[in-house]
């Protein structure tokens, strides 16, 4: 059945044209990326769609310093087939993208759409762990950190590009998820990145998410890691800190207690993989 509330459908040929259309109608217009979410969950006030297919946002560029610029309309399949994307920071992006939805979804879901919808996401924990920034357009272009972006409070805008910084020397990252079946929203997911110099962790990102909320960094665990070596003992401490620090909720699929437990498992598995991926196999 069609989304009958939609009265208007446009395919602007530039970001600026899209922005102009988006501003009309006071929240009645909605940007359309890959479309995997809007048909099922179209907000009731939306009556116009602004399809970004022709806005020139489907690209992947490597920057000279080793960073990546992902056009917002790049599909997950586009990204999975791009060598620089799947190998970035010890392969964490590829590892994650291969586990998002099924091929059918990856062929149409876009990275930009995913960031904008900010829900049920395996993608966001990895973007948070990699300190990505977003290029936004709301009349002018500006760059915003992903964490700040997820805090919300922004007016109408177009997400133009996801900017992934170059890999930090001596860093490694890993993503893991736990779900009931292979094709299911994660009960708990997580991503960890550590930057190591001379055997000591100089920076850490620990993100834990669950199926009904976007992932969040867990600063107390990051603090445990920074200044330490990534030894089995450090990992044990980080796992315990994770279970103390996160506050996951229960629902009919899994209890809060079980999710808290899984958060520790996810952190442990991420950090163990990170340790293997560090130059020289870690500490």
């Amino acid at each position: 059945m069609s989304v009958t509330q939609i009265q208007q459908y446009d395919r602007p040929s530039s970001v600026d044209a899209a922005w102009q259309l988006l501003q009309q109608g006071d929240g009645a217009a909605q940007l359309l990326g890959g479309g995997t979410d809007l048909v099922v969950r179209c907000p009731p006030e939306v009556t116009a769609l602004v399809d970004l297919s022709d806005a020139g946002l489907r690209y992947v560029e490597s920057t000279t310093d080793g960073g990546l610029r992902l056009g917002a309309m790049s599909t997950f399949t586009d990204l999975l087939e791009h060598p620089a994307v799947v190998t970035h920071t010890t392969g964490v992006l590829g590892e994650m993208l291969a586990q998002v939805g099924s091929v059918l979804h990856r062929n149409s879901a876009t990275i930009g759409g995913h960031v904008v919808r900010s829900r049920l996401s395996d993608v966001l924990p990895v973007l948070l762990a990699l300190d990505v920034t977003l290029l936004l357009y709301d009349g002018t272009e500006r760059e915003l950190g992903i964490g700040e972006y997820l805090d919300g409070g922004l007016g109408p805008h177009v997400v133009v590009e996801i900017r992934i910084p170059p890999r930090v020397e001596g860093s490694a990252a890993a993503f893991t998820r736990f779900a009931r079946t292979a094709f299911d929203h994660a009960l708990v997911n997580g991503c960890c990145r550590v930057d190591v110099r001379d055997g000591v962790i100089t920076a850490a990102r620990v993100v834990v998410g669950e199926s009904s909320a976007v992932g969040r960094r867990v600063p107390p665990v990051e603090e445990v890691l920074v200044g330490a070596s990534l030894t089995p003992e450090t990992i044990d401490t980080a796992v315990a800190a994770t279970r103390r620090a996160v506050d996951l909720h229960g629902d009919w699929i899994a209890s809060a207690e079980y999710r808290q437990h899984l958060a520790g498992v996810v952190t442990e598995r991420c950090l163990r993989t990170v340790a293997e991926r560090l130059p020289g196999g870690g500490a």
Partner: peptide, 16 residues
């Protein structure tokens, strides 16, 4: 009943 769509009522896929 809460498991009332294929997103929530998990029937096995090839990978399971």
């Amino acid at each position: 009943a809460r498991g009332v769509d294929f997103g929530r009522y998990k029937i096995p896929v090839t990978l399971d």
